[in-house]
Each structure stands twice: as structure tokens, then as C-alpha cells.
Simulated scan of single mutants.
Amino acid sequence: MTERAPAPGGLALVEALINTLRVDTGEDRLAAEFGVSGAALAEAADLREALRAACLAHAGHAMPDTAHTALNDVLAAAPLTLSVTPDGTAALRPTGDGLPARVAAAIAEAVAAGTWQRLKACAADDCRWAYYDRSPAGRGRWCTMSVCGSRAKMRSYRSRQQ
């Protein structure tokens, strides 16, 4: 949970959404940072956790069927349109201001750029912070090696010593 450079392009929105909840403390900033309330807040929280599950899958964890279904349902209902810029670049754009449509457009952009799989969630059970894996091989497991990675390696070392 240290400061890293944000994910590129629209993935920064997805990363910011996931990171509105600190798993270790339970602090939830979703309403304040995304301006949602009521039923929209509950839907945004469900979307956030389904996205976290997808990012954990990018890091090699199994994605629960419920999260997989929930994320596909939200993305299928997101209103997007294909637009072309004056220079001929085509992209999916949200047709409304809703968070699901903005997330769907960000994911579509990341898939096209080949960066979607590099948005991951920390493997530490007490962290699960979303981060963009900039390692050359794309095999990062922790949000930061100096905190979560170091703890995991120390636990592994101690278990081998016993």
C-alpha cells in the first residue's frame, strides 16, 4: 500500500475504485471518492469486489464463480458506443456517466492496449491492494516488496526453520 505510479490510461480508474477499500483496516472511501450513495453505492461496492477478484486472478488466484458472474453481468449491461476520432482511432466510450460504463470502457481500452492482465491485487490476505505490475516479466505478486513481499518471505522462512 505504498505509493506507486498509477496504472496507465483508463486502468487508473479501475485501480482507484478497487483501492477505495483498505482491507487491513476496513476503511471504505467509495462514497467520498466516487460520489455514490444509496443503491448505487451497494452496486459500486459489488463491482469493486468483483474487479478485485479479477485482479487476484491476474496474479494467479482462482476467481470465484460469483465474482465472475457479477462482473460479466455489470459489464454486459454497461452502455458503450464505438467512436472514431478525427485521426481514425477507434475506441469504446461510455454513453452515460455511470461508473459501470466508465469501468467497462477502461477495461476495453486496457485489453486493446494489452495492459489489462497487469492490473493485479496484492497476494497478501490482509492487503489485496490493486497495483499495476511493471515488472519486466509481469509476475509480481505483492503491492510492494518492501512490505507485503517481505512479510510473506519472512513467514515462509520461519515456517521452513521450524
Rank of each mutant, 00 (worst) to 15 (best):
M1A: 12
T2K: 12
R4T: 09
P6S: 06
P6C: 02
P8S: 11
P8D: 13
G9W: 05
A12L: 05
L13R: 11
L13D: 00
V14W: 04
A16H: 12
A16K: 11
T20K: 03
L21P: 02
V23H: 08
G26P: 07
D28I: 04
D28V: 01
A31R: 11
G35D: 08
G35I: 08
S37G: 14
G38H: 09
G38W: 09
A45D: 13
A45I: 02
A45Y: 02
L47E: 00
R48Y: 11
L51C: 04
L51K: 00
R52D: 10
R52I: 10
R52M: 07
L56P: 00
H58A: 12
H58C: 06
G60D: 08
A62Q: 12
M63S: 06
P64S: 04
D65N: 05
D73E: 15
A78D: 02
L82C: 02
L82V: 09
V84M: 15
P86K: 04
D87L: 05
T89H: 12
A90E: 15
A91M: 08
L92H: 14
R93P: 00
G98R: 10
L99G: 07
P100Y: 05
P100L: 10
A101E: 15
A110F: 05
A112L: 10
A113V: 01
W116V: 10
W116S: 07
R118W: 10
R118V: 09
L119F: 03
L119R: 04
D125E: 14
D126V: 10
C127W: 08
W129I: 07
Y131K: 09
Y131F: 15
R134A: 14
R134W: 05
P136C: 02
A137R: 15
G138C: 04
G138P: 02
R139W: 06
R139K: 15
G140C: 01
W142I: 02
W142H: 03
T144F: 03
G149C: 09
G149M: 04
K153G: 01
S156N: 13
S156E: 12
S156I: 04
Y157L: 05
R160N: 03
Q161T: 13
Q162S: 14
